[in-house]
Design a protein around this nucleic acid. Sequence first.
DNA 1: ATGAAAGCGCTAACAA
DNA 2: TTGTTAGCGCTTTCAT
Lengths: 330, 330
Amino acid sequence: MAKLEDIAKLAEVSPTTVSRVINNYGSLSEKTKSKVFAAMKELNYQPNSLARSLKGKSAKIIGVIFPGVSNPFFGQMVETIENQLFTKGYRIILCNAGNNKEKERAYLRMLIANQVDGIIAGSHNLEIEEYQQVGLPIISFDRYLSENIPIVSSDNYQGGKTAAEILLESGSKNVQIISGANRPNSPTNKRLEGFRKTIEEHDLEFGLTEIKFDASPNIKGMKIKEVLSNNQVDGVFCTDDLTSLLVVQQAKSLGLKIPEDLRLIGYDGTKFIQEFHPELATIEQPIEDIVTLMIDLLLKRIKDPKCQLKQNYVLPVKAIAGETSRRISK
Amino acid sequence: MAKLEDIAKLAEVSPTTVSRVINNYGSLSEKTKSKVFAAMKELNYQPNSLARSLKGKSAKIIGVIFPGVSNPFFGQMVETIENQLFTKGYRIILCNAGNNKEKERAYLRMLIANQVDGIIAGSHNLEIEEYQQVGLPIISFDRYLSENIPIVSSDNYQGGKTAAEILLESGSKNVQIISGANRPNSPTNKRLEGFRKTIEEHDLEFGLTEIKFDASPNIKGMKIKEVLSNNQVDGVFCTDDLTSLLVVQQAKSLGLKIPEDLRLIGYDGTKFIQEFHPELATIEQPIEDIVTLMIDLLLKRIKDPKCQLKQNYVLPVKAIAGETSRRISK
DNA sequence: ATGAAAGCGCTAACAA
DNA sequence: TTGTTAGCGCTTTCAT
């Protein structure tokens, strides 16, 4: 692998000069420039970014921590992050933390050791004290991590309200919310609160079923079946679209017709769901905007580590109509 | 950020000694070790991996190039890669090449500059001459990239055969294959060949519909509708499961019942599809094994860059039964 | 068992 | 406009 010094020799200039043309810095004569460029071409030269970073230049790498990209929601989010960051000259180290605290900790340490410029985290392992003392710019998606780490999220509260309104509007009287287990401090609890508020305003009640986020789809399916068969449920709000898919499955196996017998609305509204399951009503999170904002905030912090940022940034959601929440005339 | 020298001062030893305890190298007294460890704890020390790599140590980073992780298949594959690599002490830089040659080229250059230890590539942009001259270990998933780059893939030929057999077995006479556009040199063409072989052995014919891989789902849906409505199709093999989902959609909108009027089988068999769409018959690629093999080969090449590897490694597929290919009694 | 010193490939004062 | 030189933080001979 050719190094800067080789170029210098071939072009018959000093290493400094080569460095200058690479970084387009200081004043160079055209002649020198072309000589150096020629040499670079000839040796197929690539500057060693490790050495540059060691000299204080940033490595232009962002650590991205999410539960896992096999989930279409996080897949789309990570893909969006990668795309936007690429155009700004950054690359990403992908960390699938799963539900594994140890792994997340290990990654955090590693990211520090690798001198990444910043971190975007949307993992589900809370209570990682390490986040407090990472001396690095961090932005979080939809999770509380630590005092001074800004959280960007969709308007969970409004999303919950809207979901409830749509179910009521569709003619449901006996509604149920199926959500991941309640996590203290997590903004996603607001989905539940918004939902509750609206239902109560209508003097109705609702059932709450919590299913651990990391339960297998089979387990989830079983619990859903229980809920659907034991109660007179005629409307369900799932706090994510994949769970909606399971509800559709179970409803079918129980002979419940959607939307005739049961109305259903989910949350997330990924491109995947909208394209491959347009029948599903859902609350769409503005992924593109969320990512844009997170990156914007992160780059601000990178430029100026002590710049003041708010703790919470909330972006509006959008209701996506779908056959599963169609109003039923009685 | 504390550095090695700070530890040395605090522990009252030389930088060399600290380095030795970090790398567990040479002979150290217990006393010295514990002093150094204590100092490391106290200063919350993380060795700077940039500096280490610069000194010849590998950075333990692998570049991973795929079309995009928002597709559940690539999502699962990338997640699996990340998981397995993590346990071996490697991290990944994620590159979503999309269908953008320029981006893929840029990433390739970047990965070289970043001194990654190797690359796993499964992108769809062929004819990237650059792959030939990357002086780095590379393993490819299911794509021909260059002469000496090993390709790992599922048994596409057998997969195509099995799909055809299942459709025939299910009672279909007028079958159709819906696939991404034919790419020269791509092993996935074998799916088509295997399918053709079996159909012809039964003295039947089949229709072929090619839809560009990167077409939007709406466009794809439109073409599928055409196919389903113009011909007397009663059996469809989609070379990926997402396209199957679209066929289900269109069949429904045309009033075609599956499997009564139309049998359907897909390809890929991700966990996502198996869990959330168990009704879909499909040919499952052994993602876990594919990844294990790719990583195994890659690490071999990393250890010994001139070790000889075969050009092709083919792993067996598995037919996943599903309601959509159920045999219909006439 | 420990330390001194050189150097990985690059950048950035400071000189000329 | 160009070159000399001193490190960035770490590893690793070679001494002691």
